[in-house]
Design a protein around this nucleic acid. Structure first.
Length: 312
DNA sequence: TTGTGTTTTATTGCCTCC
DNA sequence: GGAGGCAATAAAACACAA
């Protein structure tokens, strides 16, 4: 014990103690061997006011056999021997701490469950009921609060540890999900990088198609102009063949009624007026000098435009 | 029996509140 | 300034393995 030695008496069944001294001097701070001894029963200033608790013929006894047995909280001071030898032995005995009995501890525990703080009245009442000094009750509650706090800290720590583990697991899962999403983004990005190439190929195909169609168109125009030249040279229109039943009535100036040529023309005109055909319309030389007749002419002559519109 | 670790009782010093 | 609470600590009491 810090600051001095404590002498105390042993009672009937104290754990390692003798039974020859039952004066109820629960604990008393006494001076060290180098200090002069205080007068008997006069507590030192600053020491517990309950260090000596002797009231009349009845003194407090609270240090019965911890493991059970016949206990009584109160013993008569007069019942015990109290000779000078005993007192002398008492003051030279080393300190003997006494544990509270099971009953006392249970009682205190129940009281602690109700309220873990002690009001003075309650403390006195408990001390009376248990046969303890009020100071002992106060110390017991104080130590009990300290134990409760320690347990509470352990519980809080366990709870925080569990929360930490949960959060850690969640964090790991989120990291995995993030990596997965990142991979998806990368694959999409590679797809996007491929898109211009795809568009370029598409353009090539369209250009090829447009060139084919415009070639056919130029050929057609050429044929038409040659025919008109022939007509101006030969004033008379050519006569129709007599045999109109002939399957191949080769009337050279009549428009070709064959399905294939007409279909080709239709397809050609349609294709050229489709948006994809606006990309590279084939222009004649003078088209580069003359501005388009309208914004919708797409580089064709107006008559050409009319032609294609009628063809539609 | 003994050494060692844990629990319990008690003290001390400091702080806060009234 | 006194009462009471709390943290730190001492030390007895106790439990238990070797």
């Amino acid at each position: 014990m810090a600051g001095g030695r404590v002498f105390s008496c042993n009672n009937t069944n104290s754990v390692g103690g003798s039974n020859n001294l039952s004066v109820l001097l629960q604990s008393q701070r006494v001076p060290s061997s180098s200090e002069p001894m205080d007068p008997l029963f006069i507590p030192r200033p600053g020491s517990s006011p309950y260090s000596f608790f002797v009231s009349g013929t009845r003194s407090m006894v609270s240090f019965e056999d911890v493991h059970g047995g016949n206990r009584s909280f109160f013993r008569s001071f007069d019942e015990e021997e109290n000779g000078d030898e005993d007192l002398d032995e008492y003051f030279h005995q080393p300190e003997k701490k006494r544990r509270l009995t099971v009953d006392q501890v249970q009682f205190l525990e129940k009281s602690f469950e109700v309220e873990n703080k002690l009001e003075p009245e309650r403390k006195t009442q408990l001390a009376k009921e248990l046969g303890l000094q009020p100071r002992q009750v106060a110390i017991w509650f104080q130590n009990r609060r300290a134990r409760w706090k320690t347990k509470q800290l352990e519980k809080d720590y366990d709870s925080l540890q569990a929360s930490f583990d949960t959060l850690k697991a969640d964090y790991g899962n989120l990291l995995k999900e993030k990596d997965k999403l990142k991979q998806e983004v990368l694959s999409f990005e590679s797809l996007i990088e491929f898109k211009p190439l795809f568009g370029f190929c598409l353009i090539l195909i369209l250009v090829y198609q447009v060139l084919q169609l415009t070639d056919k168109l130029v050929m057609k125009e050429k044929n038409n102009s040659e025919l008109s030249d022939v007509n101006t040279v030969c004033q008379e229109p050519p006569q129709k063949p007599v045999d109109s039943d002939s399957p191949h009535s080769s009337y050279p100036f009549e428009p070709d009624q064959s399905d294939t040529s007409q279909d080709e023309e239709d397809n050609l005109s349609k294709a050229l007026f489709q948006p994809s055909s606006y990309i590279f319309p084939k222009l004649e030389d003078n088209d580069y000098s003359d501005p388009p007749a309208s914004s919708c002419s797409y580089g064709f002559h107006v008559e050409d435009h009319a032609f294609w519109s009628s063809a539609y």
